[in-house]
Design a protein around this nucleic acid. Sequence first.
DNA 1: CCGTCACTTGACCAAGCGGTCAACAAATTT
DNA 2: AAATTTGTTGACCGCTTGGTCAAGTGACGG
Lengths: 211, 211
Amino acid sequence: MNIQTPTDKKNAKRREKEQIILRAAERVFAQAGFGGATMQLIADVAGLPKANVHYYFQTKEDLYRQVVSNIFGIWLEAASAFDDAVGPVEGIGAYIDAKMEISRSHPNGSKVWASEVMHGAPFTQDYLETTLVEWTQGRLAIIQRWVDAGLMDKVDPRHLLHMIWATTQHYADFRHQINTLNGGQPLGEAQWEEAKTTIKRIILQGIGVKV
Amino acid sequence: MNIQTPTDKKNAKRREKEQIILRAAERVFAQAGFGGATMQLIADVAGLPKANVHYYFQTKEDLYRQVVSNIFGIWLEAASAFDDAVGPVEGIGAYIDAKMEISRSHPNGSKVWASEVMHGAPFTQDYLETTLVEWTQGRLAIIQRWVDAGLMDKVDPRHLLHMIWATTQHYADFRHQINTLNGGQPLGEAQWEEAKTTIKRIILQGIGVKV
DNA sequence: CCGTCACTTGACCAAGCGGTCAACAAATTT
DNA sequence: AAATTTGTTGACCGCTTGGTCAAGTGACGG
């Protein structure tokens, strides 16, 4: 097993090149939005001729869809931290940590997603209506169980989830504003830790769990 | 006094027309972003020929700047609720209420602002560095005073402010996602009230004030 | 009634856009 | 080593864009 056939090598190289383009596209889409981004600029950032980009991704829309679906997948994974927990302290705490880490490591993906939703999800409404709705219902049920078990205050799980999403993603989407208010400097390691701690503390104490 | 000269009438008509264009522009910029919006579409929504729009606003950038500065002004006004307060319960509570009302009544303005900041504030960096920085420093000082007076827990005021901004604006910027998760329906009056109550409760309880 | 000035608008333009294509180079298969 | 497939690229095309402009319209002051 695990023999590298020539086909494998080719596929690997293909995927590698696709990754280069996807990373470039993520940056450009995040910086300019779908409408403002140009295939020429994406190609320049990727270091390729425009026609070559079109060889791997037929249309701008194809490329954009992949970028959006990437960040979406990363966020879904962060839910595992949520599911494995026995109570709100670990579950919600770990989920906030995970989402904050993503905001730190993938700010561009977060921005692209925010842009897409803000404009009415013109390309990914199907994701919202299927995957996101199912995922959300599962998580809402978990929170509701915690409420029913008396592990936390009676809080509408929907709005709690919105608060967590809003706050964690804010650190990616509004990174520029945060930096400007921080004297033009990006948050340092310590400040980032303090952000996580503060947010967790306010939310956990806010829903009435012992920290 | 208060005599309506012909000049006044003309100016009034001019401002009226500018308002029509600004409203149309706000909608189009919110829906498509700066790069995706077209002057032609803005003109169509306003019900005017494109050349006429250019008569009132020379460039797309001029028009965009005004839209951004409008929502910015509205948000600054919401701060009064903050300032007149004697403690965190009234101050922060009233500020959250005010910002939630704006998210409800001016979702498009909020989206335009979010878009602008997300893309690195390419047109309004000066606003961020002057007005916003000053405003924020004033508010941070107020919160710090409350902390020092023992009226609330020791919480980093910066992150508290970010949480409030993030959450309240989320209800405007991610309105589409919230509606989708609400069965495709916009939040009703009762749901909106519940959102406000839940958010205020979590945050106020989270920073340790008696509600 | 006439002249002035703010406003209106269809036609137009250069520039940039997403996307195509034919010619070529490199790698794999036979 | 010939044949075939896969990847690369500069030049190109039709179309849309932001913005201009000259010719007009209408309202007001003298």
